[in-house]
Design a protein around this nucleic acid. Structure first.
Lengths: 356, 356
DNA sequence: CCCTGCAATGACAGCGCTAACATAGATCTC
DNA sequence: GAGATCTATGTTAGCGCTGTCATTGCAGGG
């Protein structure tokens, strides 16, 4: 041990723009400090900071100056508790690495912007048990609304959501009955329409390349729709290849290679989404297969990357940003749960591209 | 208006696992309700739910049963206020659509897992004014640590961070002095090493394709390092093309086309990152340019997609996941700010690939 | 002038929880 | 078998704010 020669502390710089002589008791400039400095009561400071109730301009200036001087940051835990209103919206998505969900969050943030509300994000990793924990954990912050992906929840999660009394939006799909509000599009129908579109373009020998259905239930719905469309035309899938785990470009590339090994006569392959389809295009490029003329490829989502490919991907655009934005708009417009659940369809559009 | 024939309510199913007869006063089952039902004091319930302090098995069971029966969800606003400890870590990233940041968040979540802490995410859109607001807004929730991207902050933001007294990690770069802790790697050095590597492989006629430097200051640092390496070898960049706005595959494709129009004799092009470089590869594929033999391409980040390309991208892998994980580990390990700021280098590795 | 009406401010009582300090019994120690 | 030591529980007093209900001036109306 060195002799006790005045340890050089982190040297909280007395300047740091906020001003000198912060109240000694680290960990807490409170409303009371500001009120004392401005020589008004706490409630007056509170009202001025929230623009709530009248205030004389002189008082306002004095208070704001004091706030700046001591570097006051309101304590939302206290504020939320006192007013029983957190100004929070809980959001649960299954993933952030699938670019679709950051895009949904973009829409959510856009709609929240200026409303005074803030999103708290949870990521479930496509795991319903994790999702259940997240529901409890987010609800514990007393959000004023919740946005959650899909309809698949544990019974406990559903009970908590329902029992919370706050508005709930279930987004990204509309193929079931929501607790309160659903915003998204029909994945079954999208799959069906994909099938009809490709049949209309003359394809008859269909293959499918996909990823894990247990986690990504919506990919399964699209598959079912596709198969139904083929059945209507008296056809079936001639071959399919699915990988365990999440979708990715690498997986799409590998799975297509795998599928073609045993099914060389396909004339079109439908992928579970654009990530997989992009990988499929990569395989074609590497193997000297010319997209469309040798083999047609079709994706889902309409991601930017697919459209930047040497041959733009033929796919279906889902409106992710819109979905997030619309959900928030509806949730904030009416703060009480409506009498009956509502469903909003944000639709999808075929992007013709050049691979099918 | 239809006659008032008993409106069909959303029919909160009396079952929904949580059980019948929720306390009428919607909006609030409290500890007191649970305590009353279990015939113990509130503090006992509190202790049992937090696994804090002793409890008789019988009491525990009675309490947990009561919790389940009334569907109690703790109020963290109240809990945090009472204990002055929110168990929150604030995180500010510039974007979620750039896949690098979700990967950092993955590392953060992995490290937080099991610690009882929860991340609250803010997205600044590469805008320092937005970032400043986010700092204030996240600090208002009294997080026990903050993680923020980069060193560029407004004076006010820096003052708030500094004054908050909580631990602060500035991540993704280490080329400046942090407030408290920096975790990442040197972007200048990465650029420099890129230059040296490519020089070592015999390239001499360098071009550069990039995106907005004002927003993405780290891309600029890499560029500066690259130019310095070239200067050491008595060379300069022969041409460069930058687009305004964020990096994207489409932008990379367009900018490379643009650059090659006026500089057809380049033998290597360095891109600001893998997204841009992937777009460059797409341009080559579309224009019949063979990567490496006709023109070498080099990226930055080592994204999965670059490695799934028909010709895997030559690039530098940054360790994003590690960065997030390491930041959290250090922040949680020591909860007081250290005497002097620390810097942790998570490094990078060259991925040889097949395009350079 | 007294009264109404409004602007500006304050006093007070919690919001729902948890530290910190009791308080009883039960168990142990020599 | 008196004290020491646990274990299991309770009592009290806030955490830092905001809703609600005063209170004080002062302009205007009759």
């Amino acid at each position: 041990m060195t002799p006790p020669k005045s340890i050089k502390r982190s040297a909280i710089p007395p300047a740091s723009a906020a001003g000198r002589r912060l109240p000694d008791r680290r960990q807490g400039v409170t409303l009371a400090d500001v009120a004392r400095l401005a020589e008004v009561s706490e409630i007056t400071v509170s009202r001025i900071l929230r623009n709530h109730g009248p205030a004389a301009p002189a008082t306002r200036d004095r208070v704001l100056a004091a706030v700046r001087k001591v570097g006051y940051v309101p304590n939302r835990l206290a504020g939320g508790l006192a007013s029983s209103g957190s100004k929070l919206v809980g959001v649960i998505v299954p993933s952030l690495t699938n670019i679709v969900f950051p895009e949904v969050l973009g829409g959510i943030r856009a709609a929240l912007d200026g409303s005074g509300f803030q999103a708290v994000i949870g990521v479930s990793d496509y795991d319903l048990a994790v999702e259940e924990q997240l529901v409890a954990s987010l609800l514990a912050w007393r959000p004023e609304a919740m946005i959650i992906t899909g309809f698949q929840h544990t019974a406990a999660a559903r009970a908590m959501l329902d029992g919370s009394g706050v508005r709930i939006a279930e987004i990204m799909e509309i193929d079931s009955t929501p607790i309160d509000l659903a915003v998204g599009h029909s994945h079954w129908q999208a799959g069906f329409d994909t099938g009809q579109y490709l049949l209309g373009r003359g394809y008859r020998r269909f293959g499918y390349v996909g990823h894990d259905w247990v986690a990504d239930h919506r990919a399964r719905l699209r598959y079912d729709g596709l198969v139904a469309a083929l059945a209507d035309a008296g056809l079936t899938l001639l071959g399919s290849s699915r990988c365990p785990g999440a979708s990715s470009t690498a997986a799409g590339r590998d799975q297509l290679a795998n599928l073609l090994e045993s099914h060389s006569t396909l004339d079109v392959v439908v992928f579970s989404n654009d990530d997989m389809a992009t990988g499929g295009v990569f395989h074609c490029l590497a193997a000297g297969i010319v997209p469309r003329s040798d083999l047609a490829l079709f994706g889902f989502n309409g991601l930017d990357i697919g459209q930047a490919l040497p041959t733009p991907l033929s796919t279906m655009r889902s409106n992710r940003f819109e979905t997030g934005r619309t959900a928030v708009e509806h949730l904030l417009r009416q703060r009480e749960r409506p009498a009956a659940p509502a469903i909003i369809d944000t639709g999808y559009q075929i992007l013709p591209g050049a691979t099918a």
